[in-house]
Amino acid sequence: MATFRILVTPGDGIGPEVMEEALKVLGRVQQRFGHEFVYDEETIGGAAIDRYGVALRPETIAKAKASDAVLFGAVGGPKWDDPRASVRPEDAILGMRKQLGLFANLRPVRVAPELIGESTLKPEVLQGVDMVVIRELTGGLYFGKPKRRWENAEGRQAVDTLRYSEREVARVCHVAFQLARQRRKKVTSVDKANVLRTGQLWREVATEVGKQYPDVELEHILVDACAMYLVRRPASFDVIVTENMFGDILTDEAAMLAGSMGMMPSASLGRRRKDGTGIGLYEPIHGSAPDIAGQGKANPLAMILSAAMMLRLSLGLDREAKAVEDAVDAVIREGLRTPDIAGPGAKVVDTRTMGSAVAERI
Rank of each mutant, 00 (worst) to 15 (best):
L106A: 10
R84T: 14
A308C: 03
D238S: 08
G355L: 02
E325V: 14
L311S: 07
F4S: 06
Q212F: 01
N299K: 10
G128P: 09
L301E: 01
N105M: 13
T3E: 10
V190M: 06
P78A: 11
D291G: 05
G76K: 04
G11N: 04
L230E: 06
K145G: 03
L7W: 00
A64M: 11
A225F: 10
R135L: 13
G73A: 07
D191L: 04
V54C: 08
R272P: 04
F177L: 06
S119V: 09
E219R: 13
V328K: 03
R183F: 12
A327E: 09
K297P: 04
G101M: 10
A235K: 15
V87G: 10
N152R: 07
S236H: 11
S189I: 08
G296Y: 00
V172N: 05
M1C: 03
T353D: 05
P300D: 02
A112P: 10
A193C: 10
T3R: 15
T138D: 05
K98W: 11
T161S: 14
I61D: 01
K98P: 08
A267I: 04
R337A: 00
I134K: 00
A307V: 02
W150M: 07
G27I: 12
A69G: 00
I292F: 03
G345K: 03
R28A: 15
R333T: 12
A308Q: 05
G77T: 11
V241W: 03
T9H: 06
V358W: 01
E360K: 10
V75E: 04
D326N: 14
E124Q: 03
M245V: 15
I304P: 07
R51M: 06
L336C: 02
E204S: 07
T9N: 07
Q30K: 12
P10T: 02
D191V: 05
L311F: 00
G53Q: 14
D50S: 12
A170C: 09
L126G: 02
K322E: 15
